[in-house]
Amino acid sequence: MHIMEGYLPLNHAVGWTVVSAPFVIHGLRSISKNIRNKPETKMLLGVAGAFAFVLSALKLPSVSGSCSHPTGTGLGAVLFGPTTMSVVGLVVLLFQALLLAHGGLTTLGANTFSMAVVGPFVAYGVYQAGKRTGLSPGVSIFLAAALGNLMTYVTTSFQLALAFPDPVNGFTGSLIKFGTVFAFTQIPLAISEGLLTVIVFGALSRYSFKEMQDLNVLGGGCK
């Protein structure tokens, strides 16, 4: 989902930065509030960040014949809320843009929007919906992480189609082309991310039950 440095026209680059900024600002406030009110969850925030670090570094082969990577933002979004992951995702993207020439500073706003805004919001929404409809935490967390991952890549396809409409078939034609590259490749990876998130979430809810309760993650059934 990394749009490479310089590959978005200036107005798009600025536009996506403006759109992403409020989420990051809200996230910074929410993180500092959390650290003040629930200092015992600080280490858990580190785990959410570390998980995004690991998963976004793993480039995995897919049935489409190309490689892509998971995002790892679903876990943190479920634990701390979506905008916390907007900040964490931005840090991961900055690291990759500066040290790995992966993504870029001019495309940072757009990449933040797909990986650190849309992905976490989808994951958070799906988890909350799952909890309310009585799905087991395991199934909810799987769907949350997998769909958050997939929607991140759908968003990238959408962003690229907006910037580069097909000369013949326009926006839709482009969306199909970029969607084939990104979203289709991503399906098996989204399943893998879902399963890995279930494993880590399971370990956290066993051994850090109290912190998870403080964050109100586990919901009524487990209290």
Binding site: C67, S68, L105, T106, K177, T185
Partner: peptide, 28 residues
Amino acid sequence: IFAGADDKAMTVIEEISPGYEPWAEALW
């Protein structure tokens, strides 16, 4: 085979807009 999807997207951009020149480069 198994090239990165990010790089493949750049190829698609070049197909759709052959005249597009990336206007920035990675610092390092």
